[in-house]
Every structure is written in C-alpha cells, then in structure tokens.
Design a protein around this nucleic acid. Structure first.
Length: 339
DNA sequence: GAGGGTCAAGTCCGT
DNA sequence: ACGGACTTGACCCTC
C-alpha cells in the first residue's frame, strides 16, 4: 500500500503557542538550527573554529531530533525538508575550511550516517532546497561555478546520509532562475556529480520560469510542481490533477512517487476572505491586491477550498506544505485531506 | 525579555 | 536606481 505523505520544511514549532517566548524557544531550540554570519567569523577569527564546531554539533543534533520527531508521526506525515544552514559557511571561500577540518568532517560523517539510517528505517522522506543564490542557469559563468559548488554542498550532506545512490532517493530542489533558462540547466547537468544528478529536481517559479519552461526538462530531471507558484504565474489557474501537464510532471519521476509543493496566500493579506472559497487571482488584482503580496506564504492552511483542491493531488503526489507555522500547518492539512 | 537592524551569494518585480 | 521578496530566520544590540 502506497504511503501518501504530507511534510513540512526546516523547522519544528511547538503546539504550545501560548508559552512565553523564552519557554517556547527552550522547547523548540533543540530541534532547530543555530547559525552565525560571515561577518562574525571575520571579526572573531580566533574563535571562529570553536564557534563553527559548536554550531555544527548543535545542528547535527537538531537534525537528528527533528528526524526522530517526524518518525513519531503517522506514516502519512513522515516527510521533511532539511534546512540549508546545517554546516555554516561550507561554501564560503575564506571560511569553508572551518567545516572541512578533519575532526569536524569525522563528526559530520558519523552523525549524518546515523541520521540517514534513522530516516530510512522509519520511512521518513527527506529533501533539501538550496537558496535563491543557487542559479545553475545564470548567464554569468562565475555565478554558475558558485552555484555548482553550492548545489554539491547539499549533495555532500545527502551522500553522508547514504543518499544519492538511486534516482530520487533524496530530493534537492532548485528553480531554473537564470537567464539561460532550461538550456542552462541541461548544460550544467553533465558537470554535476552522479549523486547530484540523482537528487536534483526543478521547480516552477511564480515569475519568469513557469511550468511550461520546466516541462522542457522533463526528460532530464524530475519536475517539482508548485501549485501555488503556478497559480501566481498563470494569473489564477487552479491546475487540475488530471491536466496533461501534471501527467508529464508525474512521468518525469520515472516511477518514483512524485513530490510537489503546496502553499496559499497569507490569510492576513486577505482579511475577511471566505475560507471555503478559493481566492480569485484576477478579482484580487482588480480590487488592488498586489501580486508580490499574493505570493507570500500563509501561517496556516486556512482555506478549506484550496485544501480540498490540493488534497486531490495526494493520490499521486507527496505534498510539501510551505507555511510559516510548519508542522502546525502541515499536520491539520494532512488530517483533513486523508483519503 | 521583547523589538528591530543586520546578515555571503542572484534575479526579478514594483515603484 | 533601488527596495523587497525569495528555500529558511537567527543573532546581537538596545531598551
């Protein structure tokens, strides 16, 4: 029997929202990342190595606790995106070495291996999503080089966890982003490691490179359909699960169960909007709403009509929920749309 | 304690 | 030309 998953991204939030901020942080911090800035490392060179060690140690523990938490959830909720800041400054030219000294590399290898085993042992589906600075299709060669390095950083994490061995055993998702478009992605693929080519997925954007552009890559990589991005990009289309384009997305996964993204416009930007009616993009634009603001993610999955629509994809897709309230948004959505 | 400015990187949109 | 938004806020300083 197929498990139909719904997941959340990067961060655990406690259901006890009434706790004082300090208490809340105490409860949540053990499962969430800590970080630093390049500026701080630059200004505190003598303490930089120690600081990075401490952060890596914490972030590895946080990742393990987060995977452990997800492993306690019903099978249908065992899907998780890991944050990109696990290893601080890994690809920064002057400070990357701080995460690559021998004793840290040993720590990373050991701990990530354990985490990978736990994820596989508990059927937790994992992914990552490199940031907006990863532009594999840029028309600037230096940006492409840096982006390959940044992408391979995520692949290193996957590899340490024992992934990247077969097609889409782990998803590392990026946008096309650059001015070269789909051709730029095709050009860069042969330059990526084998594990990277197993993990890479391409997601449709709200602006510039939409679903049709992504589908040009359907023979090369798995496509991640973001139905909210498509709603923005198309000017309000609620794409149906039986649409031919959706079929082509599914085919791009070559037999692996596809993953997709679901989010909804911020509830506080649509004050008074009925929760049982899907927002009408054109009507919202006509009443003075700004496209940029309609893109912003909501706290929770407040719109039951959108949820029903998104839920219709669960037959064929695992769904990554992108919402500010993380697990507190994804879990009720999962329960409400369970078949 | 809470609030606000700041932080490596690219690209596009809106003003 | 420039600020804001984006895959993700966390940290540090001030009050």
């Amino acid at each position: 029997m197929t498990v139909k998953r719904v997941g959340f991204a990067c961060k655990y939030m406690s259901p006890e929202r009434g706790l004082k901020p300090k208490m809340l942080k105490e409860v949540e911090q053990p499962l969430n990342f800590r970080g630093t800035t390049i500026k701080w490392l630059r200004e505190n060179q003598d303490k930089a190595q120690e600081r990075v060690y401490e952060l890596v140690e914490h972030n590895l523990s946080a990742t393990e606790r987060l995977v452990d938490y997800v492993a306690t959830l019903p099978l249908s909720q065992r899907m998780l995106r890991l944050g990109s800041d696990l290893l601080p400054a890994y690809t920064e030219p002057n400070f990357g070495h701080l995460t690559k000294t021998n004793f840290i590399t040993d720590l990373i290898a050991t701990r990530l291996s354990t985490i990978g085993d736990k994820a596989r042992g508990n059927d937790v589906r994992l992914s990552m999503h490199p940031g907006q600075f990863t532009v594999l299709a840029s028309d600037r060669p230096d940006v492409v080089e840096n982006s390959i390095e940044e992408f391979e950083y995520h692949v290193d994490i996957a590899r340490y966890m024992g992934y990247g061995r077969t097609f889409q055993d782990f998803k590392i998702n990026v946008h096309i982003s650059g001015r070269q478009g789909p051709a730029g992605i095709k050009a860069v693929l042969p330059r990526l490691s084998q594990e990277a080519r197993n993990c890479i997925t391409i997601e449709n954007e709200e602006n510039s490179w939409g679903l049709d552009s992504c589908l040009e890559l359907a023979d090369d990589v798995a496509i991640v359909l973001d139905i909210h991005h498509h709603w923005c990009h198309s000017g309000g289309e609620y794409i149906e699960v039986n649409d031919d384009r959706v079929n082509r997305v599914m085919d791009s996964w070559r037999g692996v169960r596809p993953a997709m993204h679901y989010s909804v416009s911020r509830e506080d930007y649509l004050t008074g909007h009925r929760p049982d009616v899907r927002p009408d993009f054109q009507q919202l634009l006509a009443t003075g709403h700004k496209k940029a603001k309609l893109r912003a993610h909501s706290d929770c999955m407040w719109n039951t009509a959108c949820n029903e629509w998104a839920g219709s994809f669960r037959e064929h897709f695992d769904i990554m929920v992108e919402a500010k309230y993380k697990n507190l948004a994804s879990i009720p959505f999962e329960e409400a749309t369970r078949a």
